[in-house]
């Protein structure tokens, strides 16, 4: 099991390179939320409840960003077996899982007052829960497999499988009857809401990129430490 290039020592990332970007993302998100809340009038039907949209929708859409990264780097890992790709896919999977959990929680907080129920087993909600469970399984799997090569291959397989669920989640509201509404578009949403949605989509995208990047840096540093120990042990044995 040495075909993961364990011999090439991983380089730990330089310290604190992404912090500035992180602060920017967080401050941008605060500004985007305040702007969206202040400039938008209460909705005709749901009044102030509409304001949950500025968190629920951007977070939900950016889970897809995460799982797209998982798909991309899982495929590349299976192809080229670079350990960095595995670590990046795993980082995106962790961020994506947390954001999917948050999406579900925000959806429930919206569903109770708007629909009248916290939860309903309609295709959109069910497929989102399945997506969450698959990636929770992905993260659990990584805890249980110690060998890096094996861990990489197995999690890449689950990661690709899980990412294939994303189009199902997205299209569920069109393929099947759901309680959840179909996608809105600028033609079904008044301009006073569209600006806030766009701002928050951008803000959450930036934050998502930052979180994945930061998680990746931590994973890389951790593996770099293990590599150092390994080479030291091997070198000691060979000498």
């Amino acid at each position: 099991m040495t075909s993961v290039n364990a011999q090439t020592t991983l380089q730990a990332p330089a310290q604190g390179r992404s912090t500035g970007f992180g602060w920017f993302a967080v401050l941008f998100l605060i500004a985007a939320q305040v702007t969206a809340i202040v400039i938008s009038p209460p909705d005709r039907d749901m009044g102030d409840l509409q304001k949950i949209m500025y968190v629920h929708f951007p977070v939900a859409l950016n889970t897809f960003t995460c799982f797209f990264v998982v798909l991309l780097f899982s495929v590349r890992f299976l192809w080229q077996r670079r350990e960095q790709d595995d670590l990046l896919a795993a980082s995106a999977a962790e961020v994506g899982t947390i954001m999917t959990g948050l999406t579900l929680a925000l959806g429930m907080l919206w569903g109770r007052p708007a629909w009248g129920v916290w939860w309903v087993w309609d295709p959109r909600l069910t497929s989102t829960l399945v997506l969450f469970l698959i990636f929770a399984g992905y993260l659990a799997l990584r805890e249980f497999v110690e060998d890096p090569e094996r861990r990489g291959v197995w999690s890449a397989a689950v990661g690709i499988l899980g990412a294939l669920n994303v189009p199902i989640v997205y299209m569920s509201v069109r393929w099947w009857r759901t309680l959840h509404q179909v996608q809105s578009s600028p033609s079904t949403v008044d301009p006073s809401y569209v600006i806030g949605i766009r701002l928050n989509l951008t803000a959450v995208l930036l934050l998502t990129i930052f979180l994945i990047w930061r998680r990746y840096e931590a994973a890389l540093t951790e593996r770099a430490a293990e590599h150092v120990l390994q080479t030291a042990a091997l070198g000691g044995a060979n000498a």
């Binding site: 938008s40 009038p41 909705d43 005709r44 039907d45 749901m46 509409q50 949209m53 708007a114 629909w115 009248g116 129920v117 309903v120 309680l179 509404q181 179909v182 996608q183 809105s184 578009s185 079904t188 949403v189 008044d190 006073s192 809401y193």
Partner: peptide, 10 residues
């Protein structure tokens, strides 16, 4: 349960 449309209007 109330099913909301995809419209958001002021």
């Amino acid at each position: 349960m109330v099913k909301h449309s995809n419209e958001y209007r002021a």
